[in-house]
Design a protein around this nucleic acid. Sequence first.
DNA 1: AAAAACAGCAACCGCGAACAA
DNA 2: GTTGTTCGCGGTTGCTGTTTT
Length: 342
Amino acid sequence: MGRIPCCEKDNVKRGQWTPEEDNKLSSYIAQHGTRNWRLIPKNAGLQRCGKSCRLRWTNYLRPDLKHGEFTDAEEQTIVKLHSVVGNRWSLIAAQLPGRTDNDVKNHWNTKLKKKLSGMGIDPVTHKPFSHLMAEIATTLAPPQVAHLAEAALGCFKDEMLHLLTKKRVDPFSGMPQVTGNNGVGYASVSGNDKEETIEKIKLGLSRAIMQEGNGDHHVVNNGKSWTMVGSHGEASVMHDVYDPMLSGDHGFRYDAPAYGNDVGEASAWSQSLCTGSTCTGGVGEQQGGVIMEKEMEVEMEEEDGEETEGRKINGRKGDEGGMFASDCVLWDLPDDLMSPMV
DNA sequence: AAAAACAGCAACCGCGAACAA
DNA sequence: GTTGTTCGCGGTTGCTGTTTT
């Protein structure tokens, strides 16, 4: 038996909603609430599918929605949560009052992913590209490394090229920026330079591999390096701030998840989510520390299938040498959320 | 000035989970 | 326990306005 359609497609209108439709839906829901989406369009006099009505309401008409730009604090929250829970947009959106999962997802796909790539960080794993390449280098024999590196380059190439070949304007001077000393810059790059750019990417990657191989944990970023501190016994973490010159943006800070595999016990995915200096640990405070509300905690426990001991707000068991102060809001997450998402 | 390319966003689709009969 | 129905989620598509060529 096939799946039944959510509505009869012949009789429903699709596409953009008109203000009249919005009014009808809003006033109907104001009077009757949102029980039974299937009946709502019929009763409200709308030629729409119930699903479409639900979407319109939850993503646009709900009175508690925020419609403006995402703030830096919101962006930080998204990045941090994404590093832990991956593409669970509803979970992330639940931590951002007034934002919907669709909002968060769109913002991630259109802005944040590019910001991270621009910082040399893989938006999927939240690790620096160089670190990924180094992992390849340390686990495979040289002939295989070359092939894999080539393949990895293929994966990142389009995004990197997009970032590198775009003409951008220096946000401070208003002038087009010149190419940096590692080849990353903003001057307009013609189609003829494309191959050269690819070569530069390759060169950068191979350099990064060599540096990682030497035990130096640096991410070369537009002439400045991000150092992974605490290479022995404590969590490694990138502690430099996001370079606004690189992003064409202001104030966006990325405190990456640490790289636990470098140092033994500390897993990359078990690190604090606090933003170093801005972390205050105040529950309910959006700036800095990530708030784990009761609802989210419950949801995570449900996903875990059992009560997870030690998962709590404002504390983490067995982690002294963490990267941030102990008064941060911390999470202990279930195992299925700890695994790097690739 | 026109065409092409790009970016952002709203909406749609299919799937699985939850719930009810 | 099974079947049917509804809801919510995440991935994807397509439209529209803006920027670049």
